[in-house]
């Protein structure tokens, strides 16, 4: 009976994740506002599970220096550090009324959903690595593919920026300038940290 209830909850959460993912493409503002009020923890496990499956998949394509689970744990630590940083920043710069309104779980949900463009880009790049392995050539097809790939990557990057901004807007409830300050403060420590991750061959491009 308990397993039946778990299965129903899991499947309904899975459908909500799908609906929200489509919503983030077609209607990011309204969807992110709804996500910031979400409290269904199954959705977080589904997103975390999808990312875990991705790390298991790319283990076979990478140099196999570190186990996939270890890389996944580094990602989880990075994610929680990033979310914790923005949460504490909001606590630090927010007004007294604002401090009562914000919740850590809202940050977790919005940032978890903002991983969607990252997951799509990393997954599609790894699949392309199999079917169209680099290096790219200077032929007409090579140039055409390069323009397509840059367009695709930039589009997902802009989508990611929109989602990160909305995640911060609805979780922290701060105005535009304060959100930009928070992102600048985040980049001050995150860029050197990304170089560290690259040097130790954990990630070439950080998965955030």
């Amino acid at each position: 009976m308990d397993f039946k209830r778990f299965l129903i909850n899991f499947l309904s959460s899975f459908l909500i994740v799908l609906k929200r993912s489509v919503g983030l493409i077609s209607d990011p503002y309204k969807t992110m506002r709804k996500i910031s009020m979400e409290r269904d923890s199954y959705q977080l496990f589904i997103i975390a599970g999808l990312i875990f499956v991705y790390f298991k998949f790319i283990y076979f394509l990478r140099d196999k220096i570190y186990p996939a689970t270890f890389i996944y744990l580094i990602f989880v630590a990075d994610f929680l550090t990033m979310v914790g940083f923005f949460y504490l920043m909001t606590k630090f710069i927010g007004s007294r009324k604002n401090k009562k309104e914000i919740s850590f779980i809202s940050f977790i949900f919005t940032f978890a959903y903002s991983l969607l463009p990252t997951l799509i880009w990393f997954l599609s790049t790894s699949v392309l690595y199999v079917f169209l392995p680099p290096p790219r050539t200077f032929s007409l097809l090579g140039k055409g593919f390069s323009i397509f790939f840059v367009t695709y990557s930039l589009s997902l990057f802009i989508w990611k920026l929109i989602l990160i901004y909305l995640a911060l807007r609805f979780s922290s409830k701060q105005n535009f300038f304060r959100i930009i300050y928070m992102i600048i403060f985040f980049l001050i420590w995150f860029i050197p940290y990304s170089v560290f991750l690259y040097q130790f061959k954990f990630f070439r491009i950080p998965f955030v």
């Binding site: 790319i58 680099p134 200077f138 593919f145 930039l154 070439r204 491009i205």
Partner: peptide, 24 residues
């Protein structure tokens, strides 16, 4: 932007795509 980058960067853009393809 991509077309503009191709005209400005030329062959470097193709090298950049190669680097990005190793980025996952």
């Amino acid at each position: 932007i991509s077309i503009f980058m191709y005209f400005v960067l030329g062959r470097f853009l193709i090298k950049l795509v190669t680097i990005l393809q190793y980025g996952f």
